[in-house]
Structure formats: C-alpha cells, structure tokens
Design a binder for these strands. Structure first.
Lengths: 209, 209
DNA sequence: ATTCGTAATAATGTATACAAAATCTATGCA
DNA sequence: TGCATAGATTTTGTATACATTATTACGAAT
C-alpha cells in the first residue's frame, strides 16, 4: 500500500504544508530522492499529483516550484469554497440522517471543549475537528464530487492557516456558527443552512486575508 | 513545447473522448507507448495528469482504466456546473466589459448561423463555440480558479455529449438562452444572468440524462 | 564596471533494465 | 464438468543510464 510514490507525495506535501519548502522555492528531484532514499522516478510521479492539486507548479524543462498564492488567490478560493460549501450544506439539510447529525454534534462538542484552553495543541486539534465537521456535511450532501472539488481547492489556504494565531473572538464566532448549522440541519431548513455556511466561511477567511 | 508526455496526454485524451478507448477499458502503458513510438515513462507522466482530471482511474499495481461515469456522476457534475457557472455569470454581469460583450455576441451569432444547417460538422462547430461562449463568461468573472475547477469538472460530460444527436428543439432553446444571457450582461443584472445560466445548464443536461 | 557570449555544470526529460505484483494458463483432482 | 492451484506470462513499479535543456561561471570586449 505504501509505494515509493506515496512516500514521496507525503514527504513533499508535508514539507510544503509545514513551510519547510517555502513558496516559490524550487523542488529538485534529486534532492528529495536522496532525502527519502528512493530514485527520481517515483518523485516525478508524486510531483504530477501535487501539481494537479495545486501544491506545486511544474514548468517544462525547468522543474517544480512550490506554488505561491497571492491574496487574490486566497480571495478567489474563499469565494469558491463559500459557494460550494453553501451548496453542499443546502442539500445536506434535506438529506441528512440521525447518524450524520450525531457525528456533527459530537464534533461540535469536542471543538467547544478544546476551545476552552487556548494551547497550540488544542488549536491544531480544533483545526482538525473543524475540517472533519465540514467534510461530514459535504459527505451528507451525497455529492461525491463536491468533496473532491473542495478538497483540491482548500489546500493552498491550509498552508497559510498554519500561521494564523489563536483568536478567541474568531473561535467563539465559529463555534456559534457550528451550533446554528446543526439547528438548521435538525429543522431540515435548506436555505438557513446554506446561508449560515456561506457567512461562516467568508467570516473565517476574513482573518487570514 | 511538444514533449513526449504531452503527445501521450493528447493521444490518450482524444482516444477517450472519441470513444476509441471505451469506458472501463484498461489502458496499458506498453500498448500506448508502441502506438506513439515513445517509451513508457512519458506515458506514465501523462496518465497521472489524466487521472487527476478524471479521464482515467489508476489502481495501484493494476494499471489505468478509462473512467466510466454513471448517470449519478453526470447528475452530480451537472449540479456542480450549474452552481459554479451561475456563480461565475453573476459576477461577470458586474465586471464584464465591452470587449467581452462583443466576443459573446460574435460567438452567439456564429452559433446561430451554424445551427441553421443541421450537419454533423456544424454540430461539432456549435459544441466548440458553445464551449468558448461559456469559457468567455467564466473568464469575464475574473476568478481564474473558477475556470480550472469547471474545466476539470466538465470533461466527463463532454465524452457523453459526443454521442448525443442534433436536436433542433434543444438547440433553439440553447440559442435563446445565449441571447438572454447577453441581455442580462448588457444590463449588468447579476441575479438574472445567474438564474439564466443555472436554467441553461440544467436544461441542456436534461437531454443527456 | 557592465554586458555579452561561451564553456562548464547541473537539472530535467526520456529510454531502458530490472524487480515485484497481478493476471492468465494449464494441469491435477474431486 | 467444475474448481483449485502452481507455474508461466504479462504488466506495473522502481532504478539507473543516457540525452536534452536550463543554469551558472567565467572571461573577453566595450
């Protein structure tokens, strides 16, 4: 299951996400190959995947560079996420079942617990839980491709988000949104869910930009 | 500019689009390599790109297969296109300039001309012009990523659409939509443009499904 | 000192060779 | 006949070698 190409994929991806490979930096095949201890071939395979997902850019005969996203890019992506996730939330409100709802309540509760103590570890935990919360809603929409599209879209922002700090106001707002979303789902109110989600995403992005 | 990998990409892509490689068919590296007259290496590079765009699916140690899209897939993609293009049209209505509008009018006129004579060649020409019409609107929205997302999304439907026949009713409806869209853009009416685009896409997909 | 051109170097693109996995085939058995 | 299994074959995954293209370094000319 863990092919050399997969190793290379994870290696480069995490290096980009952690900031070890900085935006605009060139990613040399030989160098990565040495560090992992494999040949260049699977590195190239991984790079194709990473390029398709927007982590890096491959220029013909000039190798790969870590993509650097402008604030304009961030704005574009945020707008698209708002549209797509609002769409997903709207459908989910009609299709969501008891099991899905329980999961959302559970995730929401865990986030509230974690947000009580503002440590770095808790902040990362909240980020993780929040991601799962959003994915659960998209999954509940029943549109498999929606998850793919948003997944590929979100990555650039995740890199930047690593650097954002623990902001209690933003956090409180976010928690409140989650509770309200669950209410909308409980009532099966499509428009409400959609509107909250849109506002939720635009508001959370406001801090970053 | 024309690397071996690019050749392989175009070769496989057109084979899939034309139906030469049918849905579910296995795409063997050696076979394609022989036909083009290059080695397997660039074939694999191309396959990674094609897999990322959803043309083929790569299974670990089991090679690549031409993706086969169910009617459920088509429905999902159509819904997403409707959401995304409606979003794009809405923004475009506010940002569109005279040059963009001229291009749309020109494309619309050419489509109407071509639709007068129902030949296969004209049908393909209309398909091409229609694609450019939609892309022009997305471009006018100013969201570069929107084009990427829709581009990757639209492909599976294009494959199926190749098989759809020349339907004068559908065509007339489509032409009418285009004219109405241009009107909405001329007035800068965001909601109107968005609504027409949504209906336009859902209606045009109805025939396929 | 700067710029241009050329050689040296390094990196990518492609081909080939080899290893590992999956698939196919044929044989034995119930 | 049907099925299971072992071997042969095919196919993919990875490594390495070679070719081609970019990048850098260095020196000459202005």
């Amino acid at each position: 299951m863990s092919s050399a190409a997969d190793l290379a994929y994870e290696f480069i991806k995490s290096a980009v996400m952690s900031g070890e490979f900085r935006a605009g930096d060139r990613v040399k095949e030989e160098l990565v190959a040495e560090q992992i201890g494999i040949s260049r071939t699977p590195i190239r395979t991984a790079m194709q995947r990473l390029a398709a997902q927007g982590f890096i850019e491959i220029l013909h005969n000039q190798g790969a560079r870590v993509a650097n996203w402008s604030s304009e890019d961030s704005r574009e992506i945020t707008e698209l996420r708002a549209v797509l996730e609002a769409f997903g939330a709207g459908i989910a409100a009609k299709r969501i079942n008891a099991e899905n709802l329980d999961e959302l309540r559970e995730l929401s509760q865990q986030m509230e617990d974690a947000s009580a103590k503002p440590t770095v570890a808790n902040f990362e935990r909240i980020t993780e839980l929040n991601s799962r919360f959003h994915m659960a809603i998209i999954a509940a929409s029943g549109n498999a491709r929606l998850a793919d599209v948003i997944g590929n879209l979100a990555h650039p922002l995740l890199v930047q988000r690593k650097f954002s700090t623990f902001d209690s106001n933003r956090l409180a707002r976010s928690m409140s949104d989650h509770r309200e979303l669950i209410q909308a789902f409980e009532r099966g109110d499509s428009d409400w869910a959609s509107a909250i989600m849109r506002a939720h995403i635009l508001a959370s992005a406001e801090q970053v930009a």
